[in-house]
């Protein structure tokens, strides 16, 4: 008896047998807006991310991150209870500088209101963040809490999607289990095409941009 697999593949081979198979496309055009010098790309990233309803704070040093988070949460009238990625870069931030924050690390739990995670890259083309799963970066933190705060170094801002993938390939020998391009907070326009920000994923996406320094 032929298996379903063999049957399907055989029928595909038969269907493709007589045709002149087309070669792989020789080019994947990249939009001009994904190109430019770094300062231009940083500016474009910020503009595009804001357009997608993400918030941005800029800090000069990684040591300023806790205060920036604290200020953002206060401005939004949110409690300072944050769940951070169990990533040494985040765990070693000077959290004591923002005493109103209560910090714990790990995967997201059902009622964690705010997550803080690193972003692997920022993509200027559409103001998009690239995040990935891994032992230091549990994926639930990107999707479950109502507020997601992403930490991004301006050094990690690139022009287009391809550039972010090139960085990812350079960094990891094996593709992370899950890679997500995030552009703004979750939304839906399923009811009368009215855009509602905040559906199942985060209601708020805030990006803390660290100028010229790694997270």
């Amino acid at each position: 008896m032929t298996t379903a697999r063999d049957d399907i593949l055989n029928r595909i081979r038969r269907a493709n047998g007589g045709i002149d198979r087309k070669n792989a496309p020789t080019s994947h055009p990249v939009p001009a807006r994904a190109l430019g010098d770094h300062a231009v790309l940083v500016g474009r990233f910020i503009d595009m991310a804001r357009e997608a309803a993400a918030g941005i704070s800029r800090v000069n040093h990684r040591s300023d991150i806790p205060m920036a988070i604290s200020a953002f949460l206060a401005a939004e009238n949110l409690a300072g209870e944050i769940r951070i990625s169990p990533d040494p870069r985040l765990e070693t931030l000077p959290w004591e500088s923002a005493p109103d924050l209560s910090v714990s690390a790990g995967r997201a739990r059902a009622d964690d209101p705010v997550s803080v995670t690193p972003a692997f890259a920022g993509i200027a083309e559409t103001g998009t963040l690239m995040v990935h799963s891994g032992p230091d970066t549990p994926n639930t933190l990107h999707f479950l809490p109502e507020t997601h705060i992403a930490l991004l170094s301006t050094e990690a801002i690139v022009g287009g999607y391809e550039d972010a993938w090139a960085r990812l390939r350079a960094r990891f020998e094996r593709l992370p289990r899950s890679v997500t391009l995030i552009t703004g907070p979750s939304r839906s326009s399923d009811i009368e095409r009215k855009v509602q920000i905040g559906v199942h994923g985060p209601r708020r996406l805030h990006i803390v941009l660290i100028d010229g320094e790694e997270i």
Binding site: M48, A52, T126, T128, F143, L175, P176, R177, S178, V179, T180, L181, I182, T183, G184, P185, S186, R187, G201
Partner: peptide, 12 residues
């Protein structure tokens, strides 16, 4: 321009 989430899932 792009949707909010584009996720590439590879294995368990």
């Amino acid at each position: 321009e792009i949707t909010c989430y584009t996720t590439f899932a590879t294995g368990p």
